[in-house]
Structures are given as C-alpha cells and as structure tokens.
C-alpha cells in the first residue's frame, strides 16, 4: 500500500511536470514537450519544433519546473525533519527564522559582489539563524512550540531589517526591484544551474534524512526516550538540523524566502500516510515538489503577462493552515 502510494505520487510528479511545461502564454502540447526533451537528450536527431518553441521549453519552462520540484521537495523535507526533531508541530524553516537568515546571508554576499557564492552566504545565514534560535531556546530553558515561533519572529524581524537596510544602502533601480521580488519568494528566471543546484543539495541531504526516518520516530516521546532506544541523540540532532539548514539555505538562494511549504505539506501528508517517518519523509518530499510546482505554475500564469511572486500564493495557503495546526495542537502550544 505504501509502495503503491509512493509510486502513484512519483507518477503524479512526472505527469505534473510535463503538463506544467505545456502551460503558459505560448501553447505547447505534451507531445512537443517530449520531443524537445528527447531531442536534447540526443534521441531525436532534429528538433521537430521551431527554435523559438524549443527555447521556450528547454531554456525557460523546463529549468523552472525542475527548480520548483527541487525547491518544494527540499523545503518540505526540512519542515518534516524540524517538526520531528524539535517535537514542534509548528516548526517550519520560514516560521523559525531560517529563511530570513538565509536571505540576509544571500543578500550580503550578493552586495559584496560575490554573486557566485550566494548559496554559501544563504547557507551560512540559515545556519546562523538556527544557531541563534537554539541559543535562545537554551536561555529560555527549553523551547515550547510557541516560544520557538516567537523566537523565530524575533530572528526574522532582525534579519529582515538588516536585509532591508543593506538593500536600501547599496541597491538601485532594477536590481532593487529584482531583489525585492526574489525576497518575497519567486522562481522567476530559474536556470538550469538553479535546477542543478537544487538537485545536488537534495542528492546530498535527502539520503541522509531518509536513512534516519526510523530514528526520527524514536523522538516521538522526547530525547530521553530516543536515547533509551539506542539513538545517539546529540549527533543525530546536529546532523539533521545541519542538513535542514543546508537545504533551506540553498533553496532560499534559489527561490527566495518561500514560506509555509515546510508546514503545509508535512501536515497534509501526515493525514494521509500517518506519522511514521519511513513513510512520511519520502511522501512529503514528493508532495512538496508537486505543491511547489503547481503554486509556481499558478504564479506565472494567473496574471499573465505579469508574474506574482510564488511566496504570495504559498502564504495565502499557508497562513490559514498555520491557524488550523495551531487550533489542533492548542493544548501544547
């Protein structure tokens, strides 16, 4: 049953990707999409479509669709891991301030002229925000879910203010607008390089996270219970939180601070497959990919020719879900 639902979700992901590539101002059929892909993979000697249409598929839409899949998968995985390891149903890289930290790191590197190292800056930023959150949690003598969120608000506010100041200080005109749109969360202008970066970081982090699914189950009753089941709690915690900081940092470098994906997706998937992380993690990863793909497709097609930052859509969906989660878990928050 689990295997079936996973394969079904995988098929849905592929189908969604092909359909999403056909959607947009220029009408392109699924057949054309396949032939362009096969052509570029060297299986079709001559492209059967015009060069313009070929470029729309291969240079614009396909990289963007793949980037959306990767970013969604990464953010959903991050959220699932954070919820398990902090035992906080409200945990999400965006709500805990990691995304804002990553944005600050990315903008800092960008304005220092280190555009190529921007992902590194974003990773350092999200790691810094995570470290700050953990230090504050220790000072508070343990982080309840609401304390963690309040800490996240504080870190977000601080990082956002610093980011805004940096932009105010150094950016002008076009770059100003571009940075603002990216800050709100947008996959517009995604390139093959972005898709490759997202894929690379997923290939690095996802196996590590998926291999620890059962260990995450052991956290259901807290650290001591996990330790008594043979889990090396400190090591697992630092490894997996490090992986989520890396995933969040890179995804923010690619798509800006796209919020709530790490909250909405794991909770929805939990309702379908339950809390066991051996099932939850792979399902959440695919569901996150599909969710991101369709919200981004909506972002670029709904108000064509203008483009909505996808972060606006995920927040429109995410904020009410946040409230629902809050109501459901009101006893502990």
């Amino acid at each position: 049953m689990t295997r079936f639902s996973f394969l079904a979700l995988l098929a849905l992901t592929l189908l969604s990707a092909v359909v999403a590539v056909t959607l947009g101002p220029a009408d392109i059929t699924p057949n054309e999409v396949w032939s362009v892909i096969l052509h570029h993979l060297g299986l079709f000697p001559e492209s059967p479509v015009s060069r313009l249409r070929d470029a729309i598929v291969w240079e614009l839409r396909l990289p963007r669709v793949l980037t959306a899949l990767g970013v969604g998968a990464g953010l959903a995985l991050s959220g699932t891991v954070m919820q398990a390891i902090t035992r906080n149903p409200l945990a999400d890289p965006y709500l805990l301030g990691l995304s804002s930290g990553a944005a600050l790191g990315a903008v800092t590197f960008l304005l220092l002229g280190l555009a190529l190292l921007m992902p590194l800056g974003a990773f350092l930023g999200s790691l810094g925000a995570l470290a700050l959150a953990l230090v504050i949690a220790t000072l508070l003598g343990g982080a309840t879910p609401s304390r963690a969120i309040l800490t996240g608000i504080c870190i977000s506010a601080l990082a956002s203010a610093a980011t805004s100041f940096l932009i105010f200080w150094s950016a002008t005109g076009d770059s100003y607008r571009e940075i603002l749109s990216w800050l709100m969360g947008s996959l517009s202008g995604s390139l093959w390089a972005d898709a490759a970066l997202a894929a690379a970081v997923l290939l690095l982090c996802a196996p590590l996270i998926l291999a620890n699914g059962r260990a995450l189950d052991a956290f259901a009753f807290g650290d001591t219970a996990a330790a008594s089941l043979g889990i090396d709690v400190p090591r697992l915690r630092w490894t997996l939180l490090g992986a989520t900081a890396l995933l969040t940092g890179i995804m923010v470098a690619i798509g800006g601070a796209i919020g709530f994906v790490g909250l909405v997706v794991p909770h929805a998937v939990r309702l379908a497959v339950g809390s066991g992380h051996r099932k939850l993690l792979p399902h959440a990863m695919l569901a996150g990919a599909i969710f991101m793909l369709w919200t981004d497709t909506a972002a670029r097609t709904l108000f064509d020719p203008r483009e909505l930052p996808v972060g606006v859509i995920t927040a429109l969906i995410g904020a009410p879900v946040f409230l629902l989660v809050l109501l459901r878990y009101r006893r502990i928050t």
């Binding site: 035992r87 149903p89 259901a220 009753f221 807290g222 001591t224 219970a225 939990r270 339950g274 809390s275 878990y329 502990i332």
Partner: peptide, 10 residues
C-alpha cells in the same frame, strides 16, 4: 519514564 506524551498520531 514517569509519564510520556506525544503529539504524533501514533
């Protein structure tokens, strides 16, 4: 333990 609670749907 003395008491153990979880918010997971187990």
């Amino acid at each position: 333990e003395q008491s153990a609670s979880t918010e997971e749907r187990l």
